[in-house]
Amino acid sequence: MFWPLGHLLAETCGWRGGLLAYAGLALAAAPLCLTIPSGPAPTPAALGAAGRGADPVRPAAAFGFAVLVAASAFLSSGLSAHLIGLLGALGLPVAAAVGLAALPGVGQSGARLAKTLAGHRIGPLGLGVLASGVLLAGMIAGLAVAGPGAIALIFVLAYGAGNGVLTVVRGAQPMVLFPLASYAEISGRLVAPSFLAAAFAPRSMPPRSRSGARAPRWG
């Protein structure tokens, strides 16, 4: 919703006005946090009992999980900043690029809804493999984008769907890969590299078009 809204605000009241409108929306949404139900936190004894007898941490699983999370963070951070410019460089007019840039959110929400409806029929590990496959298919489709069309639609929807599910399963996978009693410590250490990967993702320079000109800086 916010890519088209931001484009409309920038066109009508400038980028400063758009930022002020976004700040107002953020302030209006802040009280929603008060509606989150609270409950007692598990005791250390309960966590210890839950993690007793669990298999030790496997280095291969820890490495694979850290790489997956870091790679998806790098991709998501870079594409989020440059998706409109990238679509423009691939031959889409600005209005079409802005509209398509809103669709990853649709793919994300749709994939998460499908995951919720599927229930426990697929576990976190299988779901991660499936989401990675969808994301890979989207990136391959992106290589073939040459203007508006079905391929561009597949690219943005698959990117949103795959990335949206991966951001969910990365919180559930450590619970089946590592001892539950050490969940917070282990997952925190393994997710930390993803923040560095996101920080190193390309942000400052928009991509070049096929004619060599730089695409508009919309991201």
Rank of each mutant, 00 (worst) to 15 (best):
A81P: 09
L8H: 14
G219A: 02
L19S: 12
A114L: 11
S204R: 12
P31I: 04
W3Q: 15
L130C: 05
R203V: 15
S187I: 12
T35R: 15
S77I: 12
A10D: 15
A96Q: 13
A54L: 00
H120I: 09
K115V: 15
R203N: 13
L8C: 07
G138E: 01
S211I: 04
A29N: 05
F65I: 05
P4A: 05
S204V: 13
G48D: 15
G147A: 03
L86Y: 08
A198T: 04
P4S: 04
A10F: 11
P56W: 00
A215S: 11
P42H: 06
L27I: 09
L135T: 01
G107D: 00
A181E: 02
I122H: 13
S187L: 09
A49E: 03
S38A: 13
G85E: 05
T12M: 07
A70L: 09
A49K: 02
R189T: 10
Y22D: 09
L9N: 08
L135E: 00
G126H: 05
A199K: 04
A81E: 10
R170I: 04
V176T: 01
L117R: 08
L157M: 04
P174D: 03
G171Q: 13
Y22F: 15
R170S: 10
A10S: 15
A73M: 01
L143Y: 12
R217Y: 11
M205N: 13
V165M: 09
A49F: 00
F65P: 02
A46Y: 07
P31T: 03
S211R: 12
A199F: 08
S109F: 15
H82V: 00
L90N: 12
F200R: 07
S209D: 13
G85H: 06
A161G: 03
V169C: 03
P104E: 02
G119K: 02
A10E: 13
A61H: 14
A192P: 14
S76N: 15
G17D: 06
A29P: 02
L113W: 04
S80T: 12
A213N: 10
A201Q: 04
R58E: 02
A96W: 02
S211V: 03
L190R: 09
P42Q: 06
S182N: 12
L100Y: 11
L190C: 05
L166Y: 03
F65A: 07
G219F: 10
S76Q: 15
L190Y: 11
P216A: 08
V94P: 13
A131N: 01
A114D: 01
V98T: 10
Q108A: 15
Q108M: 15
L117C: 02
G64P: 07
S204E: 12
G149E: 00
